[in-house]
Design a protein around this nucleic acid. Structure first.
Length: 517
RNA sequence: GAGCCCGUAGCUCAGUCGGCUAGAGCACUUGACUUUUAAUCAAGGGGUCCUGGGUUCGAGCCCCAGCGGGCUCACCA
């Protein structure tokens, strides 16, 4: 491998450290007693003895300003950055000035991990700073980091911004771009807040199979794989709905799972082949109850993640405090198109689509036509959290028939900023009805619908044993994370979004494999 | 899948109409400097111009093909 000049120098510095008897990768632990942020927030010169008189902290060296026998540098730990002051005669009190003159000034590079011990003070310029008395090399960095600089006004220079490099080398992105770190901290808080909310109500977090012999519970193309010992095909799950309902059959009152789903479909700003979903099922409830639960949950989560229920997204303020507006599918279409389609048959719907300039094709049935009108004319208007309820039965094979409205099911979707983020039903628990719905799907599959749902005989058997009335909900965690962090691409809320391998990298890996064989 | 745009030093970017040895800032190297903060000052080194063809006396620039990325649209929950 061809090393750049800077990489060569760092490897030479590594060897020189070893020649001086300094281990660049020491094994022993380093005791940390303080973090950059707490020092900056809590340091006080009040009283006789200021606090933080003896601190020990560790992190990456991110910049140095050497002025002869004294230097300032910045240390970045897990909480942020703090300035350190390194004076020659402080870290080298004796005759031997090598630790400062050679190790600190020459052999340390930006990106190296070091540990420092000393006391906190405030410089003439007013900067809270750690005055270093002891300095330890903790780990040498062999590649130059992109250096991002900020001036007094907060202007950023030479930011590491190329999306391709940021996603392929997320570790670098995280080191040099603090706002990226914040997004992922918020994502983590989102998931833990949601978990806390459910756990607080006594519902059980569970895990169900990711490798499934039948990919059920949603309409999507799956990833296919093969188990060698069983010599059988397996699919990566596109949903976990049917397994969670089996657990309701088994007697749990509330179960939820937060985990990855896999769909072998297109990728864009809002789709990654693997994504995180939260699904929850609660017995003896219906979709009306679920709408109230979602309002409470999202209000709580928004507060925990952002500190407010009014969260800015793309210049708009989205208010997650409930209750949310509720419109039936038919009401929503009437409101935004002026056309009442509630009594229409397929031919009349087709006519309505023509008048509304909604493109359709002959294979579309009644449910699909309604969905097209909705997608074209309504969705974009649903900025504030809005429930759309009562969907046509044709498109929803796992939801219970509406208690009073013919041809509809008890389903809602929650829209925020024109995008669906949650989907819920009063779950279908009539095993005979469920079998018929699966059979309808089979007929769609025979007509060439690649995404029609497969019939799951074991799931039907479980329903035949009896499932209590149950309401179920799915939330797209990545899309919710985008909304709560004001990000416009799913790649910005995934640590490692899927990327096409670079040819050069791929070849290099093949080379390595050949070498190791 | 279609259209548009992009790919030059470790990072961010210039590069004119195709014309000298491909530039800048930061980073790096050497030297000066004991409270600096985008530290400063002086000197210096660093390039597979994404890859492969082609046109041309001459290509970072023009043409063709490919690879990778971004945006928009389509498809898809």
């Amino acid at each position: 491998m061809q090393l750049s000049e800077q990489e060569t120098i760092r490897r030479e510095n590594l060897q020189k450290l070893r020649d001086l008897g300094i281990d660049p990768y020491p094994a022993e632990k380093f005791e940390i007693t303080a973090y950059s942020r707490e020092i900056k927030e809590e340091f006080s010169e009040e009283g006789e003895a200021p606090n933080f008189q003896q601190v020990s902290l560790a992190g990456r060296l991110m910049s140095t300003r050497v002025m002869g026998k004294a230097s300032f540098a910045e240390l970045q730990d897990s909480a942020g950055r703090i300035q350190i002051y390194v004076a020659r005669d402080e870290i080298c009190p004796g005759e031997d000035k090598e630790l400062y003159n050679t190790v600190f000034k020459k052999l340390l590079d930006i990106g190296d991990f070091i540990g420092v011990k000393g006391f906190v003070f405030r410089t003439r310029m007013g900067e809270i700073t750690v005055h270093v008395k002891e300095l330890t090399v903790l780990s040498k960095s062999l590649r130059p980091l992109p250096i991002v600089k900020r001036d007094e006004e907060g202007n950023v220079y030479d930011a590491f911004t190329d999306p391709e490099q940021r996603y392929r080398q997320r570790y670098v992105d995280l080191v040099v771009n603090p706002h990226v770190r914040d997004i992922f901290l918020k994502r983590s808080r989102l998931i833990s807040a949601m978990r806390r909310f459910f756990d607080g109500r006594g519902w059980l977090e569970v895990e169900t199979p990711i490798l499934q012999p039948i990919h059920g519970g949603a309409a999507a193309r799956p990833f296919r794989t093969h188990h060698n010992t069983l010599d059988m095909p397996l699919y990566l799950r596109i949903a976990n709905e049917l397994y969670l309902k089996r657990l309701i059959v088994g007697g749990f009152e509330g179960v939820y799972e937060i985990g990855k789903m896999f769909r072998n479909e297109g990728m864009d700003r809002t789709h990654n082949p693997e994504f995180t979903s939260m699904e929850i099922y609660v017995a003896y409830k219906d979709y009306n109850w679920m709408m109230e639960m979602v309002e409470q949950c999202l209000e709580y989560v928004a507060l925990e993640v952002t500190g407010t229920t009014q969260v800015e997204y793309e210049g708009k303020v989205i208010d997650y405090a409930g209750p949310y507006r509720r419109l039936t599918m038919f009401e929503a279409i009437e409101q935004y198109t002026g056309v009442d389609i509630s009594g229409m048959d397929e031919a009349a719907l087709r006519d309505a689509c023509r008048k509304l300039h909604v493109e359709v094709d002959p294979t579309m049935g009644k449910g699909k036509l309604i969905d097209e009108i909705f997608g074209e004319k309504v969705e974009d208007h649903l900025i504030q959290p809005t429930y759309i309820i009562d969907y046509p039965i044709e498109m929803t094979p796992l939801a219970k028939k509406h208690r009073s409205r013919e041809g509809l099911v008890e389903r809602f979707e929650l829209f925020v900023n024109g995008k669906e983020i949650a989907n819920a039903y009063s779950e279908l628990n009539d095993p005979i009805d469920q079998r018929q719905r699966f059979e309808d799907q089979l007929r769609l599959a025979e007509r060439g619908d690649e995404e029609a749902m497969a019939l799951d005989e074991d799931f039907l058997r479980s329903l035949e044993y009896g499932m209590p009335p149950t309401s179920g909900l799915g939330i797209g965690i990545d899309r919710l994370a985008m909304l709560l962090t004001n990000q416009h691409s799913i790649q910005e809320v995934l640590f490692f979004p899927q990327m096409r391998p670079k040819a050069s990298l791929h070849e290099r890996q093949q080379d390595k494999e050949q070498i190791s064989e």
